[in-house]
Structures are given as C-alpha cells and as structure tokens.
C-alpha cells in the first residue's frame, strides 16, 4: 500500500459518492450516461469474482463490496426509479457500448496473465474499464450545460486512474512490480480523459461553465 494508491481509491470512492449525491439530491440523472454505468457494473462484477475465492482483505474487500453495491444501485436508480428514470437523456446517450464489450472480451481471451477463468475475466474488466467512460464523454459533448456535480464526477473518475499510474510507477521502483496489462490499459484510460481534463481545468480557472466542443 502507498499514498498514491490510497488517494486513488479514495478519489474513486469520492467520484461514486458525488454521483449518488447528485442522483439522490436532485432526483435527476440528466447528463449521466446509463451505458457507462452499465459497463461499470460489468467491470466490477468481472473483476471482483475473486471476492469468494481469494482470502479476504481488510482493505480491498470493503471497497469491492462498496463499488459493486453502488454501481448496481446507480443503474437501478437510472432504470427503475420512477422519478430519476424520466430524467435520463435516452436520446443523447447514443454510444454503441456493446461494440466495446466484444473487442475487450476477445483481447482478454488472447492477452491475460494466465489462461484461467478468473484471470481472463480480470483482464476483460481491465480493458473494459479503460473504454467504459466513452459513452459518458460522448454524452457530455452533446450536453448543452453540464452541471457541476456531473463535471466533478467525471473529473474524479479520470483522476483516480491517473493516481493509479503514479502508484504503479512507485511500485515499479519501490517493489519492482511489473504489470503490463493494467499499466497500458490505465494509460489509455487516462489519455481518453485528456481533453475533458483540459476543458474542466480551463472552466475551473476561468470560473465559467464547463462546455465540451
């Protein structure tokens, strides 16, 4: 465990809390992509199958349970809550996210640490997480005004994986740990946020509304 990793996991948790607060307090999921949320449920389920097979960890296990529970809750709200589901931008959330699942599955089939059920699914979840934000970024581009909570949610979500990159650099030098799969996927994931980060920081510094081109 190192400070980068701890900060990264807390940032990830914060992003989910911000989203839950937004949905619960405003009773609205306007600007949130249900497709991205669906993909995150798939990411967490395929990654945390080892909850039951590997020894529990005082740190990881609670986080895994919280990530699973919150991501499923968010999808439930957006799909079934009578008030919230009306606010979902169904016609703007148009990214064909199913086209993301198959390539990640095929890639995981061929590139994984070990050809076992758990390892292939784990690789699948790493690859899928890298691209899961795409529907959300596409939806933000078509949103006329992005509310602060949504902007902060996406920013924290991007920041957490950037902090993981620092954690991996630290672990490479301090613990001589090398993990190509999450490293490359994490780089791709963070790179996808590049232009969002640029516009987010610009709007924050000029104290103006966040607007993506």
């Amino acid at each position: 465990m190192n400070a980068f990793r701890l900060l990264a996991d807390l940032t990830h948790l914060l992003s989910i809390i911000i989203l839950l607060v937004k949905i619960r307090t405003t009773k609205s999921c306007a600007g949130i992509s249900l497709k991205t949320q669906d993909l995150y449920v798939l990411v967490f389920i395929s990654r945390y199958l080892d909850l039951f097979t590997r020894p529990l960890s005082l740190y990881n296990t609670p986080f895994k349970l919280v990530f699973l529970a919150t991501s499923i809750t968010i999808v439930y709200y957006m799909r079934y809550h009578k008030v919230v589901k009306q606010t979902y931008n169904k016609d703007s959330d148009t990214f064909k996210h199913y086209f993301l699942i198959l390539p990640c599955a095929v890639l995981a089939f061929f590139i994984n640490p070990k050809f076992t059920f758990i390892e292939v699914l784990w690789s699948f979840s790493i690859y899928l997480e890298a691209v899961a934000i795409l529907p959300q970024l596409v939806l933000l581009q078509s949103s006329s005004n992005i509310d602060n909570l949504t902007g902060n949610y996406v920013f924290m979500l991007g920041a957490y994986r950037a902090l993981y990159l620092l954690n991996w650099i630290y672990r490479f030098f301090a613990e001589d740990v090398v993990r190509w799969i999450p490293w490359i996927a994490g780089l791709v994931q963070t790179a996808l946020y590049a232009d969002f980060f640029y516009y987010y920081i610009k709007s924050w510094r000029n104290n103006e509304r966040l607007k993506l081109p």
């Binding site: 990830h12 990881n60 986080f63 895994k64 070990k114 954690n167 993990r179």
Partner: peptide, 10 residues
C-alpha cells in the same frame, strides 16, 4: 514463475 501476480489492487 509464470504465476500471475495476486490481484492486490482494486
């Protein structure tokens, strides 16, 4: 060893 590293991260 080609044992995959344990998934000690989230």
């Amino acid at each position: 060893s080609n044992q995959p590293l344990p998934h000690d991260e989230l």
